[in-house]
Amino acid sequence: MPVPVTEGFAPLSVPGAGKPCQTYYKIFGEVKSGVTPLIALHGGPGATMNYLLSLADLAEPPYDIPVVLYDQVGCGGSTLLPEKAGDVDFWTVQLFVDEFHNLMKHIGIETYDVLGHSWGSMLGLEIAVRQPTGLRRLILSSGLASMKLWEEATRKLLNTLPPDVVETINKHERAGTFDSPEYAEAMVAYNQQFVCRLDPYPPEVLATFKALEDPTVYGTMEGPSEFTITGSLKTWNITPQLPKITVPVLITNGAYDEAADSVIAPVWKALPRVKWYTFPDSSHMAQWEERAKFMQVIAGYVKLE
C-alpha cells in the first residue's frame, strides 16, 4: 500500500506583513499513526523543502515514520514577501519559531521529533532552548551553534580551493559584484566540494538552488554568500543558551561538509545526552550523497527507546 501524502496550507498571522500569510506543508504518512512524527526544518534561510524531499524515504517501510516538510514563510509554496527584502526587524528568528508552532497546532501534532538542516538546525536549537512540551528529540543535520564559527570554517574551506578560484571569489566579494557570471562559476567549485558532491545534482537540489536566487530572506538574514555574513544572523550565537536544552540530541555532518566539526562542537561539549555521526562520503547534503545510510542513522536514532 502506498504511503499517503497530504498537502495543505496553514494560515499564519504575521504582524507587519500587511497581508494574510500561509505556510505550505507536505505530510508523508499518517501523523496520527501512533509513531512520533519527524518535522524537518529546511536551510537557507530562504531555501525550500525540495532538497529535503528524500526524507520521505523515512515514511516508507521498514521505517514507517511520519514526516512533515514545509516551506518557511517567504519562500517556496508559502507566502512570498519580496517587499520585505532588507527588513531585519521583520525577518527574525522568532518569526520562524512562531511559524513552526503555528503549523504544529494547525496539523494537530502534540509530540514530535525535529530534524533541522543547516539554518534549520539553528531554528531547531532556537525551538529547543525554549523548552516546548511537545519536543521529544532534536537532530542537528549539518548544523551550527555560532555564526562566527561558521564564517571562520567556510572561509578556511574556501582557501583550500585552487588559487584562481579563490581570487575570483575574493575579487567579486570586494567589488560587491555577486551577480557576475564569473563569480557564479567560481562558486560552483565551492558547492561541488562542500555543499553537494553528486554529479549531476538531484533535481530537488537544483530546485532549491533556484529558489535561493531570491535574496529576500537569505540576503537579509545571512548575506551574499556562505562565507561573507552581513545579515542579521551575523552575530547569532546560541552557545550560552545550550544548557537549556533538555531533550536528547543527535549531531550529523559530512566528512567534507561546510558545516565542519568546529561549528557544531559547542553542542557536543555542552550537553550530556548527545550523539554524533559523520557521513564519510558526504559534504553538506548527506540526505542525498549517502541517502540510504542517512535514513538508517536517522531512523535508528528516533526509534531508540
Results as ranks from 00 to 15, higher is better:
H284V: 08
L95K: 04
H284M: 10
G76P: 01
V14Y: 03
Y301G: 05
E60P: 00
I65A: 00
D281L: 12
E258F: 08
G143E: 00
D199S: 15
N50S: 14
Q296A: 13
F209G: 02
F294Y: 15
P61T: 11
I109A: 07
E185S: 14
G43K: 02
Y218W: 15
Q94M: 12
V188H: 12
A299R: 06
L125G: 01
W236I: 01
F9C: 13
V14D: 03
F28H: 12
L198G: 02
G76T: 05
K275R: 15
N237G: 05
G34K: 09
G219C: 09
M221D: 04
D257L: 08
I127Q: 00
G44W: 02
I107T: 05
P11M: 10
D71C: 08
T177R: 13
E185V: 10
F90M: 10
T246R: 14
G29C: 07
E305S: 15
K105F: 08
I169L: 09
W119I: 02
V3W: 01
I264M: 11
P181R: 11
L103F: 05
D87S: 12
F178R: 07
L242R: 03
E213Q: 15
S13F: 12
F194Y: 14
V67R: 00
V274R: 06
P2H: 13
I264Y: 06
F96E: 02
S282D: 03
Q193M: 13
I109V: 15
H284Y: 08
G44C: 10
A292R: 13
V165I: 15
I139R: 01
M147G: 01
E226L: 12
A175K: 14
Y190W: 13
V114I: 15
L149T: 04
V195T: 07
N50K: 05
E222A: 14
V205S: 01
W119L: 00
W91G: 02
T48K: 01
W236Q: 01
Y277V: 13
N191Y: 14
I264H: 05
P62F: 04
L233M: 15
V247D: 06
G74I: 02
A175F: 10
A211N: 03
T92Q: 12
P181L: 08
A286V: 06
H42M: 07
L206D: 11
P11T: 10
L138S: 05
A299G: 10
Y256K: 10
A59T: 08
A260G: 13
V31M: 05
L140S: 05
S118W: 02
W276Y: 15
T246L: 12
G18P: 03
P4K: 14
K26G: 01
P61G: 10
G34Y: 05
A175V: 09
L95N: 04
K148N: 11
T252E: 03
Q192M: 12
F28P: 00
A189N: 10
S13V: 14
L144H: 07
R137G: 03
A59W: 00
R155Y: 13
L12S: 05
N159M: 14
T220D: 04
A270R: 03
W268D: 04
D113M: 03
G16I: 12
I127V: 14
N253C: 11
E99F: 04
V165S: 01
A184P: 03
E30D: 15
P224R: 09
E173I: 07
P62Q: 07
I229M: 04
F194C: 02
D64I: 07
P280M: 12
D57Q: 11
G176P: 06
I245S: 02
Y70N: 00
T6A: 06
K156V: 10
D164V: 12
